[in-house]
Design a protein around this nucleic acid. Structure first.
Lengths: 152, 152
DNA sequence: TCTTCTGGTTGCACCGTACAACTAAGTGGT
DNA sequence: ACCACTTAGTTGTACGGTGCAACCAGAAGA
């Protein structure tokens, strides 16, 4: 096992640990906004409104899951559905002011957490780390794990 | 917003994306071994057997959750419980040969996935990336998000 | 028009999780 | 020796997130 393999093993291990920890702790702080809800709201803000189908495709979620998430967010008053003039089936989703507010709060609080955790890092390392994550996620392309090589 | 803040924002965004993606896709490949089961088995292999309470403490899970996970793993024949001579309450958990086998398979297949995704990276970048993740996770110290700064 | 496609909802089942109540076993004080 | 307290683990219950399948309503094309 050469040095590159050791590094890959470490990356594997640490990213797995991160994912597990995120899963375990994501819901406990900000109970009003789960990790998925948060990313959904964030996407709506980024793109400025889209359809439920777009969310499902973008996040590789089942449309039923998105439907329920959106229902919950609407019930909470964070998103609103607007009819589409061209197509009566689609409902364009938009953030409400309350949704923008909550999203901003949660983002700010999480940013603080990340900033604390990254305090003391040289700017050069921050930039490289960010670059590596971008590059890695781009390569991951929406799927975290591939199927087993030979067993299927 | 200076360059460091931009980097931190990117790290925040990309790690969040990774966590969400992991959550969404972890269960679909290797349905026989969820992300949690996998890390539990991995820990048992690393430390060579421990108590359910140790697992709960190490992964910040409720003991009931661990109890059920362990029960499932035992039912699947991947771990076995051994009585402790000193304390009749504790059951020391060990991987069975089948557990070692499955763990090795899943690890291998995931390693392949990571290796593919990291193919073409210069060895220097791999080492730095691994180092950054280690450093970040060490700073995270078991909790992914801190409470909101002022709202509570 | 009639069939097919598409956006979305709902019923159902499953998993992972927490909390609370509980049992069984060890520990310590009197 | 006994009783209170702690600790390890299980079980009941509830909840949130997820996928699949069935379904409905609107749109598009043969």
């Amino acid at each position: 096992m050469n040095a590159a393999d050791v590094s890959i093993e470490t990356i594997h291990h640490e990213l797995t640990a991160f994912a597990r920890r995120a899963r375990a702790s994501a819901g406990r702080l900000h109970p009003e906004l789960s990790l998925v809800s948060y990313t959904l709201l964030g996407h709506l803000e980024d793109v400025g409104g889209c359809r439920a189908t777009d969310l499902a495709a973008h996040y590789a979620l089942d449309k039923s899951t998105v439907s329920r998430q959106v229902s919950a967010l609407e019930r909470a008053g964070l998103v609103e559905r607007r009819a589409d003039a061209q197509d009566q089936r689609v409902q364009v989703l938009h953030l409400t002011p309350a949704g923008k507010e909550i999203l901003a709060q949660v983002t700010a609080s999480r940013r603080v957490a990340f900033r604390e955790r990254l305090a003391g890092w040289p700017e050069e390392d921050l930039e490289r780390f960010a670059g590596y994550l971008l590059r890695y996620n781009a390569a991951a392309g929406g799927v975290m794990f591939r199927a087993a090589p030979a067993s299927d």
